[in-house]
Amino acid sequence: TKMMTEYLLLEAINEGRVKWDQEYSVSEYVWKISHDTNLSNVPLRRDGKYNIRELYQAMTIYSANAATIAIAETLAGSEENFVKMMNKKAEELGLKDFKFVNSSGLNNKDLKGFHHTGTEDEENVMSARATAMLASYLLNDYPEVLETTTIPKMTFREGTEDAIDMQNWNWMLPSLVYGFEGVDGLKTGTTEFAGYCFTGTAVRNGTRYITVIMNAKDESGKGTYKSRFDETKKMFNYAFSNFGKEELVPANYQVKGQKTLPVIKGKEDKVKIETKDPITMVVKNGEKENYKTKLVLDKEKLNDKGELTAPVKEGEKVGTLTIESSNEGDLEFLSEKGKNKIQVDVVAAEDIEKANWFVLMMRGIGSFFGNVFGGISSTVKGWF
């Protein structure tokens, strides 16, 4: 849930609707939540003012719930309006199996009576896939989030009597107790309903993975802070040990048997075609050969005989090349955005100028007599 709040805040910052140094005046709702010691929080003064950056840091590093609600109120005027923004954005991003009922991820019964009427027993719900998609969009659209998620420790209101030390709840950051090489985010979450959850991300040698763990339990079946990191470690070890980026198609690649397209009305009767860019994909070790290419030509560029009409410009798009699995079943991607990464343009590799009128006329004459002689030849053969 807080990842969606982070996304909407960073979007607003990027669009200039909110500024980092903008001040927030504490509402009664936020004040009451902030002083609940059973929840993850930084206590806020009822008459206090806090800038958006420090509230964002408290939310992102320390999972501070009241700070999260404060951000929601800043962006939408009320948490109720903000929840509408959350659900709308989730639909825009193509998430499935989700429902946001508040900005923090708490059960509505923990909101001190400030929940929307008739929703006391409701909770935010997201599938593992929807959570992974949200994490992917957050990292790709606003990578600056990592500047904060990588902070292992920070003091809230440092230098004041309200100073509070915040340790990042992501204990897999390299300097913390369950440190793992390459981990730089992203968000923990714990509720009675969902159990111990963690959306992790790690990068090594330019390859980044996202993992989602929900309701993690140890060997005895008990949910613990450690269990979610133990399960995440297993997933990261599996990913980094068994998968890697492979260039499946180089730039300027030509499909065997389809290296050219016929051209009419040109100085040349065919043109070379090739991929504009390479295709790189994460594949399981040793399975690079399990993929094949599929060329799809742009029918609007071709006549009924499958020919291009001159002039043809170098770099002109004539189709697309996509990667397919040699085995049964389609390749699966987290989103359409990911699927589009294995599709590249196929373009003309050279200019084909249009032939002048004289050449075209002579070709027409030659074609006419060729057809005449062909007809005579067929007729003569028919006599015998």
Rank of each mutant, 00 (worst) to 15 (best):
S377R: 04
R157E: 02
A76S: 15
L186G: 10
E307P: 10
F98I: 02
N14A: 12
G315I: 02
M154Y: 10
E11M: 08
L10E: 11
P311A: 05
I213S: 10
T201E: 13
F384H: 05
S40W: 07
G77T: 02
I33H: 02
Q22F: 01
L297M: 07
G189A: 00
E316N: 10
W383S: 15
K256I: 00
V380I: 15
V249Y: 02
D330G: 09
L302A: 14
E328C: 07
V101R: 05
V145Q: 02
K109D: 02
L39E: 01
T60R: 15
S136G: 03
G319M: 07
T131V: 00
F373P: 10
G77W: 00
N81F: 08
I352E: 02
G189S: 06
K49G: 14
G77Q: 11
E274Q: 15
A66T: 12
K317S: 11
G94M: 06
A194P: 08
I352M: 08
I71L: 11
N51T: 05
G366A: 11
Q167P: 06
D97N: 12
A132C: 07
V263K: 01
E274H: 15
S127V: 14
E336V: 02
E144S: 14
N170V: 02
D277R: 15
V83S: 05
G189M: 01
N170E: 05
L360A: 02
K233A: 03
V312S: 09
G189T: 01
P152Y: 13
N290D: 07
M126R: 10
T211C: 12
W357F: 12
Q22K: 11
G382A: 12
M281D: 01
V83F: 00
L261H: 00
A12C: 09
D110M: 13
Q22N: 07
G182P: 12
N215K: 09
I52D: 09
F358W: 14
E219A: 13
R157P: 06
T155R: 15
R208S: 11
D184M: 11
H115M: 13
K259S: 11
M126E: 12
L39Y: 05
S104I: 05
G375W: 10
G370K: 04
E23G: 07
W20P: 07
I213V: 15
E350L: 14
A67Y: 06
P152W: 03
A64H: 03
V212I: 05
K32T: 00
A251K: 15
T320S: 09
N102C: 00
M133Q: 07
G182H: 13
E289V: 03
K299A: 09
Q57C: 13
E247V: 09
K234N: 12
K301H: 05
D351E: 09
T68D: 08
L186Y: 10
T5R: 11
A163V: 07
